Computed example of a mutant assay.
Amino acid sequence: MRLLKDILRWNGPIKTSSLSSLSPKIMFTFSIACRSLLSLDDPERVRQLREKFNTVAVGVFSIPIDLPGTRFNRAIKASRLLRKEVSAIIRQRKEELKDGKALEEKDILSHMLMNIGETKDEDLADKIIGVLIGGHDTASTVCTFIVNYLAEFPHIYQRVLQEQKEILNQKKEKGLRWEDIEKMRYSWNVACEVMRIVPPVPGTFREAIDHFSFKGFYIPKGWKLYWSATATHMNPDYFPEPERFDPNRFEGSGPKPYTYVPFGGGPRMCPGREYGRLEILIVMHNLVKRFKWELVSPKENKRVVDPLPIPSKGLPITIFPQS
């Protein structure tokens, strides 16, 4: 619950300088993750952590060649430094909990230490690092392309703005609450359509647990399989005119099961789905109620994957205060 309260309580100003060169490495999402997971608020320390995390995240999706100067090699070195730093935070928190200086509800780290029993600091650090990487890059990618598509389609921007205004007009207290998030149905449809066209994770690997055949191909047990969210989302059998941006696809019951998989599906669905939804909707709420914007060079800015989807020119925009 501390996680939800911290995120929902965020209702502060957005610096215009941070919007002029919006990219998947938005500092906001990483700062929120550090605060919610580790109660880490020091901006300089968060910045240093983010640099290491960026190096690791890029290396995770690189060719695994461990030679000096390669992305993979740099990621290995950065991961060792990260594990050392996060392990130090864990040891300090253990002492605080032992001395009664920290509460179990303080953050996710405290909750884990109080509930998972004895575990090695390094193993717990790996789990925290994994959650931080997932909570940073994927949500940042979605927020970036939401800004892109809202600029491309002013009528959709207006519908999002209208929904957010209606929520604000109905409120009696300051700051967002959980019930406000639940009312952002059209805004979430927009975010879902962004994730359909630009999945923050294009796909991942699974292992065949038994022999099976698929469209004439025999897949032996134990083989590694790559499932592609991008290919599934652009399949016209599931999404008519798949290239067209249409948030109304998600009205009512939405797409058929396992045809829309930005968070995966089944028992291994991403556990951070609701966390990501909170981040994304709060960013949308604070952006549209404060600003309007235009793309600086919409025809020149293409989408590339390196290793996650990003605008090739960093998505420069011109912003205007909301009247």
Rank of each mutant, 00 (worst) to 15 (best):
G265M: 00
L225T: 03
L132D: 04
Y275N: 00
C192W: 01
D237V: 08
D6G: 03
R303F: 14
R91L: 14
E294H: 11
R50H: 13
P43I: 10
S228E: 02
R9K: 13
L168E: 12
S36M: 11
K84L: 04
K94V: 05
G266S: 05
V58C: 03
G135D: 00
F263N: 00
L49A: 04
L81A: 12
D246F: 11
K84M: 10
D123G: 02
S87G: 13
D246V: 12
L103M: 15
H233I: 03
R206K: 13
D237H: 09
K120I: 02
G276D: 02
D99G: 08
S228I: 02
K256T: 06
C34S: 13
Y258L: 02
C270L: 01
V190L: 07
N11Y: 15
W227E: 01
S297M: 11
K172N: 15
P199T: 00
E122D: 13
A78I: 04
N148G: 01
F153N: 12
S20D: 07
K289Y: 05
S213M: 12
P298C: 07
L278R: 08
N169Y: 07
R196T: 02
Q48G: 11
I219F: 12
R35T: 12
N286R: 10
F61H: 02
I197C: 03
A139T: 02
V60E: 01
G272C: 00
A191C: 01
W188I: 01
I76Y: 09
I310Q: 14
V283Y: 13
G314W: 10
L281R: 03
V296C: 06
V160D: 09
W10Q: 11
R45D: 14
V304H: 10
P298I: 09
V131L: 10
E274A: 00
L3V: 14
T259S: 07
K94E: 15
A229G: 05
S140L: 01
E241D: 14
Y149R: 08
R71C: 06
K98C: 13
H233N: 04
E193C: 02
H111M: 15
W178N: 14
P311R: 13
K5N: 14
S31P: 06
G266H: 05
D306G: 09
G130M: 00
Y157N: 06
P13M: 07
L225K: 10
E173V: 10
M234A: 08
V142K: 00
D237S: 12
P316S: 06
I89L: 15
S323F: 12
F28H: 10
V147R: 08
N11H: 15
L49T: 09
R303E: 09
